[in-house]
């Protein structure tokens, strides 16, 4: 509710302006607002909602691009086939594994980076410029860089790790191949995480930290009792975004292993059915399932960690 004398408060964004309630004016404002968002909204829906509905429709057919005339309605058969196939569950498991591990590493390393950047007094411009480079680099390039780095014919990793034989083939088995993929993911996205956390860190009151220090709290206590609780919102939003991003992992897998030795993600599996095999029917079913699983994960993260979505939506 608005009051006539509302001053510009700290987050006084949606405060009503200092004009008397005037229904014509409000109507005009309503209309203008809707007109201004309409093009953006229409475009966003054109490329997502409409195709998604089409996917939903196509997923009920046996439909291959190589034989478009043989399209046949099969009901939920594609979903039954997909859900009863171990490939879907294995790739889902692998995707969740990638998501959990990369986000955990990114959070810890990103937080350490944020602490350093928060405290560092020299070369701030240099460090911030450097940290933006991995963020700006094309994921495909990151994938290539690490693939070649781990290569046993032209890379350097084997010669730098003393416990490894120089002929060790990183892409020969699941464990090391997935590790290489995750290194590329973590390398590229940790800087982004650290910047988000840095913003959160900046909002923690220095006075509170100082007060805790005066009270004799150790560094660890200050972190866990003062800093982290006050950064909760920032951390949770960062985790939500990165987790969903990680769940969609595709580029690095495509470049580094092309899905070999069990490294496929759900996105990669879907891509294979649709783009490589032209199986639009079951591919669409996978697309729908992928979309639903993203929703589910978003929902779980929001509920489990009580993420303040309003802050992500900027309603405050």
């Amino acid at each position: 509710m608005s009051t006539v004398t509302a001053p510009a408060t700290k987050d006084g964004v949606n405060e009503k302006k200092a004009v008397p309630p005037d229904s014509d004016r409000m109507k005009a404002e309503n209309r203008l607002g809707q007109r201004l968002v309409a093009p953006a909204l229409a475009l966003m829906l054109l490329v997502t909602a409409f195709p998604m509905l089409r996917s939903l429709y196509l997923s009920l057919f046996d439909y291959s691009l190589t034989a478009p005339d043989e399209r046949e309605f099969v009901g939920l058969q594609n979903y039954i086939t997909a859900l009863s196939d171990s490939a879907l569950w294995l790739t889902t498991l692998n995707t969740v594994f990638i998501m959990v591990v990369t986000v955990a590493f990114e959070l810890v390393i990103g937080f350490a980076f944020a602490l350093v950047m928060h405290r560092v007094v020299f070369a701030r411009g240099l460090i911030r410029t450097s940290i933006l480079i991995p963020y700006g680099i094309i994921t495909v390039v990151s994938g290539f860089a690490w693939q070649f780095a781990f290569s046993n014919t032209n890379g350097f990793v084997n010669s730098w790790l003393p416990f490894l034989d120089s002929t060790f083939n990183w892409f020969g088995q699941y464990g090391s191949a997935i590790a290489a993929i995750m290194v590329s993911e973590i390398w590229k996205t940790t800087p982004f995480m650290s910047l988000l956390l840095l913003a959160g860190l900046a909002q923690v009151s220095e006075d509170m930290v100082e007060a805790a220090k005066v009270d004799g709290a150790t560094w660890l206590q200050r972190m866990t009792k003062v800093v982290l609780p006050n950064m909760r919102a920032a951390i949770m939003v960062a985790v939500l975004f990165r987790a969903l991003d990680a769940y969609r992992v595709f580029d690095n897998i495509f470049v580094m292993t092309n899905g070999a030795v069990g490294t496929r993600s759900v996105s990669f599996l879907t891509y294979q059915q649709v783009v490589e095999q032209f199986q639009f029917g079951i591919g669409s079913a996978l697309s729908v399932l992928l979309f639903l699983s993203v929703l589910l994960i978003a929902f779980l993260i929001v509920k489990l960690f009580k993420v303040d979505l309003a802050s992500a939506r900027q309603e405050k």
Binding site: V47, T48, F50, P51, M52, R54, S55, L58, Y247, R248, F250, V266, S267, F268, T270, Y271, V274, V275, F280, G283, S284, S287, V288, L290, F291, V294
Partner: peptide, 8 residues
Amino acid sequence: PVVSLVSP
């Protein structure tokens, strides 16, 4: 998930 949009 952008991959879901590829086929439609």
